[in-house]
Write a protein that binds this DNA or RNA. Structure first.
Lengths: 341, 341
DNA sequence: CTGAAAGCGCTTACAG
DNA sequence: CTGAAAGCGCTTACAG
């Protein structure tokens, strides 16, 4: 059923029916009700593609998965996407997922030239991410999940990674820890750099050195967490506490601690950043894991709203948010030397 | 730049330019080359939405994430999606992700009536999944990732879950294990039922009972794996081996084994199904985990191809595949009683 | 408050 | 081998 048939059935013009359906104020109350009832009865829905052509809006936001940016393929990303899609659905906006094998720029060009999306979301940006310049040149509005330095002002939503790791480090210092290892992502990425900064600043604030040997960064798999933690804990002067950038790194680190015959908490304290995944919940581990927490799913939801706003022409500079991060102390952190007292 | 402008620039009709661009055979070779060169030069790309309206195809396949079907939000799903998107890109097809909060049927109705997608992929189906009937009624072609019983014949791609768990169980029996616990997903889902069947059949084949107390099923988080394994291992007659339906369940089960002061492999053998996630690789754990393996990412890729085929009107009954599953023996499985000999 | 008509940017019979 | 024109199904000035 299309608009033409529906309006013929009602004995009205397409114009009036379209207006009634779209809630224009000038339509008579009686007419509007008739139209709405008929639409309901016939399960009428405007074909999205026709509406898009007429309005000139794609009605979609895009996100591209790049197989070289392995971070994006992280399980964590799924929760982000779910949040994104849920929020988009509220306003009848689609989420378009594209994958690339190498040529990310080419994919953005296709999206831009085919006008497939009204805005793009960029995940896990690097410090100076070339993608925002590219997108700007292509005329595609962008919202960054994270932060990046760019000539063009752009909208973003980030969490306070620096503050989170600053406070987590301070908490460990207060528990008496003096050597605190960092098990981080690649510092080419902004989030990892910010966390490193927070860790360093907190140590510096207490006059403690942030030794290079305690500063690990790389991919964020369970395996890497194991490898990094093992290296740290077999140092001549091993750390007594570990700060991990993801739950997977933490899982690997916990395994390394056990492999070395040490006890998590009593011998080595551990804190991890938790994105709120449903498949692995830090509070249910042995021992329960102390975390810095921020729901990546909620971030996805808000990002969708921002994307739709900038697609509608909102000023990107006015759409920038940094969310605070909670610290939740649990059994994996103890005073240095052991007992919890 | 649109088609009209491009053809004016070339001094040709839109018809000819369109045909040249779309590779129609009747266009003169010289003309075609001119058109292609100009398109390249001006970075011309047909607006996808206009083409869609004209051809009547949405040029997209849909997938809906339902928050109550927690399985879909599994990290595992991300790899599936990446495979799906990568394959779709090959043929200029979009992947549309929608999220629902409860009303999954409503979401499918919207997709169908707005003609937003040409086909839909259904994940983790239940035994008799009502969604395929619904989709059939809505006239939306479906491809199922997994298998389900339905009145309507539909396309699917599944892995041989029954065979995989059958062989894994036999392998354990050959190692001398007589009590083998199953740590499975909810058997309302086909994949879990099939795995249960494989386990049961293998036991029955050797004259061993498949005791109910050894048959656990439920959600598939790390926490559940821990809970199930703990319950099994504190039974009066505990199993000497565990068969887990996911890497997360296995992670939890391994934790439970350690918590009880037992050794993985020596005291309790463990096998898990591995979907090939990049964030957690079974071969790098301590000890390396024996698995039944099938790449969920590859499955996503093939599913996309199938979806596009049925969108083009291919016979669903001809598009059904069951993939074999590899078993990879590693350190987590040992002869009952311990030493590897 | 309602309608006739143009337009969004393509594709595709149909005619030559 | 090429082109004029209709059509896909909407929205939206413009006129009344």
């Amino acid at each position: 059923l299309n608009l033409k048939e529906l309006s013929q059935h009602l004995g009205l013009s397409q114009t009036t029916v379209s207006r009634a359906l779209n809630g224009f104020p000038e339509v008579g109350e009686r007419t509007r009700r008739r139209v709405l009832a008929a639409a309901e009865q016939f399960h009428y829905r405007p074909k999205s593609v026709a509406r898009k052509l007429a309005t000139g809006r794609a009605g979609a936001i895009g996100i591209v998965l790049s197989s070289n940016r392995n971070l994006l393929l992280d399980p964590i990303f799924m929760d982000f996407l779910a949040g994104l899609a849920a929020a988009s659905a509220q306003t009848d906006t689609d989420v378009l997922v594209s994958a690339t094998h190498g040529d990310e720029a080419g994919t953005y060009q296709r999206l831009a030239r085919a006008r497939s999306v009204d805005a793009v979301v960029l995940s896990t940006p690097s410090i100076e991410d070339p993608r925002v310049g590219l997108l700007h040149r292509l005329g595609l509005p962008v919202v960054v999940h994270g932060r990046t330095t760019s000539a063009e002002p752009c909208a973003f939503l980030d969490i306070d990674n620096e503050g989170a790791f600053h406070r987590a480090t301070e908490m460990l210092i207060e528990l008496g820890h003096r050597r605190i290892g960092l098990v981080n992502g690649d510092t080419a990425y902004t989030f990892a750099l910010h966390r490193q900064r927070g860790w360093r600043a907190a140590l510096a604030g207490r006059g403690l050195p942030a030794a290079d040997e305690l500063d690990c960064r790389g991919p964020m798999t369970e395996e890497d967490g194991h490898r990094f933690a093992r290296r740290l804990l077999t140092l001549p002067q091993p750390p007594t506490a570990l700060l991990c950038s993801s739950i997977f790194l933490a899982l690997g680190a916990m395994r390394a601690i056990r492999d070395l015959g040490l006890a998590i908490g009593r011998d080595v304290s551990i804190v991890a950043h938790d994105d709120g995944l449903s498949a692995i919940r830090p509070e249910t581990l042995t021992p329960p894991l102390t975390t810095t927490f921020s729901s990546i799913r909620a971030a996805g939801g808000r990002i969708a709203e921002i994307a739709m706003a900038i697609a509608d022409g909102a000023d990107p500079a006015s759409l920038r948010e940094v969310w605070a991060v909670d610290i939740v102390a649990r059994g994996s952190t103890m005073p240095v030397g052991g007992s919890r007292q």
